[in-house]
Amino acid sequence: MQPLPTRNWEDILGKIDRRLVYIGLFLFTLAPLVGRWALPLNTTEPTKMLKKAFDGLPQDKVVLIASDWDAGTQAESRPQLTAVVRYLLRKKLKFILFSVTTPTSPQLGQTVVERAIEAEGMKDTWQYGTHWANMGYRIANAPWLRNFARSIQDAMKNDWKGVPLAKLDVTRGVDKFGPEGQVSMLVDVTGSSSIDNWYAYLSPSKVTIGLACTGVMAPEQYPFLDSGQLSGLLTGMKGAAEFEQLTEQKGFALAAMAGQSFAHLYIFIMLVLGNLSVILGTMKKRARG
C-alpha cells in the first residue's frame, strides 16, 4: 500500500484550491453588507475637485451627462450617476442625459434619474422636458462627434422618444459648449473609454469636463486631471461613496464600501499566505543547504 503523500505548510499555503479562495471572498464581502458595518472614509482630492466644479456652475446653463454604462458596470456606475444627479438636483442645475456607448444605457440612465428625483422629493417640481431630458443613444463615429462639438442641436435633433429639441424647454437653444455656449459642463459616467472622445473633441472648447469611471480605468485618467483637461474624477464605487459623504447623501455606495473594504483586506490576507509559502520554501531550501 502506497503511503499517503504528506502535505507540508508550504504546499497548504501555496496551493489553496481556487474554489475555497472564491468562497472566502464571497463571505468577506457579504458579512459587512449583512451586518451593515459602517467605516469612516477619507475623501480624496479628485472627488473634492468634482464637487468644486459643480459648485462653480452657473444656474442659467445646462449640464450634459453622458451616461455611458450598461448592466455590466452598474455596481460602480449606478451609484456614481445617482450621486451626481442628486447633487445637481439639490443645486437646481438643469441637465441633459445622453449615451454613446451602448444602446441599453439610456433606459438605465432614465431609471436612475427618475429614482434620484424621487429620493430628493422633487417629483412634482422637477419635470422631464422642463428641467431635464434624455437624448437617448447616438452612434459616436468621428463625423458625429465633430458635429456634436460644433452644434448640439444639429447632432442630437430630438430626444430619445423622438421629440424635437425645440419642443423641450431644457434643450431649446442649447447648442454650444464652453464659456460662450449654453453647456457649462459635461460629466461622463462611464464603464468604457468614451471619455477619450470628449478629450479630443470637447477639450478645445474649454468646457468643464468631469468623469465618473470604473476603478480599473482611473489610473489612466490621472494625467488628464493633472493637465486640467479633467476637472474632477470619481473612481469606482469608492468615488461615489466619497461624493455621497462630501455632499451628505445617504446612498448605496457608502453602505457598500464596507464590503469593498473587507474584500481588499481578504486579498491582502491571500497575498500574505501566498508569500508565506514562498518564504517557508526558501527557508527549507537554505536549511537543506
Binding site: L39, P40, T235, K238, M257, Q260, S261, F262, H264, F268
Partner: peptide, 9 residues
C-alpha cells in the same frame, strides 16, 4: 489597495 478603502486607511 489599502490606500483606497477605509479599512486600509
Amino acid at each position: 489597495m489599502m490606500g483606497q478603502v477605509p479599512l486600509g486607511q
